[in-house]
Nucleic acid binder design. Structure first.
Length: 770
DNA sequence: TGGCCGTGACTTTTT
DNA sequence: GTCACGGCCA
């Protein structure tokens, strides 16, 4: 076994590490898999290891570290930087980025190889939706059988598996898959025509490039001799191909992750990547980090007990040496308002106990839950921020401003142009636009070129014609400015477009109630542009000497430093397109953070409140159909619980209004999977218990010892084959029964509905015949 | 052309 | 409860 004293470590990089941490941090060559439980010092290991590599004389520009969020990338960069002596000569050029940003960078450099212009746009969800809408209507698929959103998710799935539209076409069998293939085809065409890509394309096209283009592959292989990937359990097939393509030449692939924290299966993440890593890379060094340095005993034990209910997992022993700490508080509240108040109270008392607001967070399964929590925090006078980086850029006024900028950065982007050509209203209405669109289609030119050609378009009145001319002149002026300007003018330019486009006046003028707020948001966008820094040469770009080494292949990955205004704008738009919700978190604000469980991945807080622990909420109703989905929900719950360092509160509301409809709820089965000795249970919903079946079950789970006869007994009454009646789903047949915690879950096939997984104790099944 | 209002569909999670 | 869309009127 290694120990610091056995290794020459003058910079003390390996000091204070546990044995397995040391093993990982001092790993240099060959494949390595670090299975890092929650709070096991993962980031510490990664940063020390990078510093260690450089310490061994490996130039920083040969190291590539990939993360999932910009926040994680930024933190990693900072922490590595802090570990490196400023005198170190080989510290320049470290490449730390998110997968998506890395891919965007590759594509800017090799745009022509994938049939794009380097000014390509990155479409966000709403752009994708308009593109898909158009795709469906042009290929006569808009019959109402499927929505743009469902088609997009099918296409996304295909892309994550690296399937092209042609491949989908080929293997399409039934009506639905054929429709998907056609929609995919037509959607891709639209994106291509607009010189645009979606999020999945960034990965897909880069993977294709790495896989099929020898020159690009060897360029990447030659530069990046050491590849690190964080949160490896959440990589999808495309990401695997990219990482593998770069690293298989030298095998220096170092991945860190935790299968128990895999929560992006729905997005194409493939846990097999981490589970089968050692088979794919022979000679893999496997290091398991189980000791938790984050949370106190009851929290770790509670989370551990929960996750043990997953069948498809590799067990890892979780333990802490931080002492028992406090029990997990579980509070049953009356309704969602009451729940929000209880959480506010818990935050107050945590604050009194010396926990800073900035070290507290409230987590929930769906964004819709944030509203009521916000209300209660506001009236309690507790400062809070919502981690929703993407929401800011989805606001109408911001999307408008960005569409202006995008149309300027990428003149082929018809989606952006169409959005703003008449915003604010400038007499270029639907009719005019349609005529112009037809002309563009007919002449096979972009919408903007068609606007320039307005005098040749029929069916447009003189007034509209004049308006179009004024608009195109303004745009031309901006474009000229972009060509000639430089980086430092970015914020000024953004402000100018906001003013000269009339957007600002539009929101100020009409006396809209929220006009002021919208203008403030636009100013915020200008601030973002002012704070935007081009990818930093110091830590991000390769040093000049790197260029020489690769002259025989292609120019080095990164081209000359960008200084022009146009490049700056494109870079800015790219960074804006790739923001994550986590990026909105700013610890310096001293506020409680609200976010989804998904967004909480990788973060930690002294105090965590988890809201909405109800069946249908967590686990979410949409994921209760199969065992796999249920296990992912359980992992999500596990991720949430393990964010807490000292205090964990889990709440549920006995009744909750969903979509305006108030419903009684059933406590999440996850709650009952936590052993009593780690829990302090509080019932504040006022119900006596015996008059209501649900609360009896809830009681029995935690307080009553009588659950054995009630719980286990039920499974025996519904053997497979029993025909039952469900109040909502109707008649069905029991397929199988399996014990889950102290209750029994049944898979029941309902006529015309499909198979549902039900908790026998909660679903009021009636036996039709046995 | 543009704005207003009523109706209906829909919400899981995100780079 | 919210958003998007289509129809209707100034």
């Amino acid at each position: 076994m290694l120990s610091p004293s056995m290794i020459n470590d003058p910079e003390h990089l390996l000091d204070g590490l546990t044995e397995p941490q040391l093993e990982a941090a001092a790993h240099v060559d060959g494949p390595a898999l670090v299975l890092a439980g929650p709070g096991s010092g993962k980031t510490r290991v990664i940063t020390r290891r990078v510093a260690w590599l450089l310490h061994q004389g490996i130039p920083a520009w040969q190291v590539l570290a990939l993360t999932f969020t910009n926040k994680a990338a930024g933190e990693m960069r900072e922490r590595i930087d802090a570990l490196l002596p400023s005198t170190m000569t080989n510290r320049r050029g470290l490449f730390v980025a998110t997968f998506h940003a890395f891919c965007a960078r590759q594509m800017r450099n090799h745009a022509q190889l994938v049939g794009l212009d380097s000014g390509f746009s990155i479409y966000d969800t709403s752009d994708q939706r308009s593109a898909m809408k158009e795709a469906l209507s042009t290929s006569n698929l808009d019959s109402g059988n499927w929505t743009p959103a469902s088609m997009l998710s099918a296409v996304s799935k295909a892309k994550n598996d690296l399937k092209t539209a042609a491949a989908c076409e080929e293997e399409a069998g039934d009506f639905y898959t054929r429709a998907v293939a056609r929609a995919y085809q037509s959607y891709s065409k639209i994106l291509r025509r607009n010189n645009a890509v979606d999020f999945d394309d960034l990965l897909l096209l880069t993977a294709e490039l790495v896989r099929t283009n020898e020159a690009v592959r060897s360029e990447l292989q030659n530069r990046f001799k050491y590849v690190l990937i964080d949160e490896y359990q959440d990589t999808n097939h495309a990401q695997f191909v990219i990482a593998d393509g770069i690293a298989n030449a030298h095998g220096n692939l170092f991945v860190v992750g935790d299968p128990d924290q895999s929560i992006y299966g729905w997005r194409g993440a493939d846990v097999a990547n981490i589970l089968e890593f050692e088979e794919k890379y022979s000679g893999t060094k496997i290091i398991s980090l189980g000791r938790n340095f984050r949370s106190t005993g009851h929290i770790v034990a509670a989370a551990d007990a929960l996750i043990r209910n997953n069948r498809r997992r590799k067990h890892k022993d979780l333990h802490t040496e931080l002492g028992d700490g406090e029990q997990v508080r579980m509070i049953r509240c009356q309704d969602e308002r009451h729940e929000a108040e209880q959480i506010a109270l818990a935050i107050r008392s945590a604050s009194t106990d010396g926990i800073d607001y900035r070290s507290m967070a409230i987590l929930y399964r769906v964004n819709a839950l944030s509203r009521v929590l916000e209300d209660s925090l506001r009236s309690a006078g507790i400062p809070y921020v919502i981690a929703r980086g993407t929401a800011f850029f989805a606001r109408r006024e911001i999307k408008d401003a960005l569409s202006y900028l995008r149309a300027l950065a990428n003149p082929l982007d018809d989606v952006a142009l169409a959005r703003i050509v008449n915003v604010p209203a400038r007499k270029i209405g639907a009719k005019t636009l349609k005529a112009i669109g037809r002309h563009a289609m007919h002449e096979d030119i972009s919408l903007f070129d068609a606007l320039l050609d307005v005098n040749r378009v029929e069916g447009i009145g003189p007034r509209a014609r004049r308006s179009v001319e004024i608009f195109t002149q303004t745009v031309a002026r901006w474009q000229a400015q972009l060509e000639n300007g430089h980086l430092a003018q970015l914020a000024g330019f953004v402000a100018q477009v906001i003013t000269e486009s009339g957007l600002e006046a539009m929101h100020l003028g009409t006396g809209e109630e929220d006009g002021q707020e919208r203008v403030a948001n636009l100013n915020e966008l200008v601030n973002a542009a002012a704070e935007f820094e081009m990818p930093d040469e110091e830590l991000d770009g390769p040093p000049p000497e790197a260029t020489d080494a690769n002259e025989s292949t292609l120019p080095i990955v990164d081209s000359a430093p960008v200084a022009g205004l146009l490049e700056a704008l494109r870079s800015f738009l790219e960074s804006v397109a790739l923001v994550s919700d986590q990026d909105a978190i700013d610890e310096s604000r001293g506020a409680v953070t609200l976010m989804t469980l998904h967004a909480a991945k990788g973060l930690e807080y002294d105090f965590i409140a988890m809201a909405g622990l109800e069946e249908g909420m967590l686990p979410h109703a949409r994921s209760q159909e199969g065992e796999q989905e249920l296990e992912e929900e359980r992992r999500l719950c596990f991720v949430g619980m393990t964010r807490a360092k000292r205090r964990l509160v889990m709440t549920m509301a006995a009744s909750r209004a969903v979509r305006g409809q108030r419903n009684r709820t059933v406590p999440s089965s996850f709650l009952s999977e936590v052993p009593e000795e780690h829990v302090s249970l509080e019932r504040l919903d006022g119900s006596g218990g015996f008059d209501e079946g649900l609360s009896i079950v809830y009681d029995s789970e935690f307080i009553d010892e009588s659950h054995d006869e009630e719980g286990r007994g039920l499974g025996a009454r519904f053997p497979a084959g029993t025909v039952v009646r469900h109040p909502q789903f109707g008649i069905g047949t029991v397929r199988s029964i399996s014990p889950r915690g102290t209750v029994s879950s049944a898979k029941v096939a309902f006529h015309g509905i499909g198979t549902k997984t039900l908790i026998l104790e909660y679903a009021r099944l009636e036996i039709v015949h046995g």
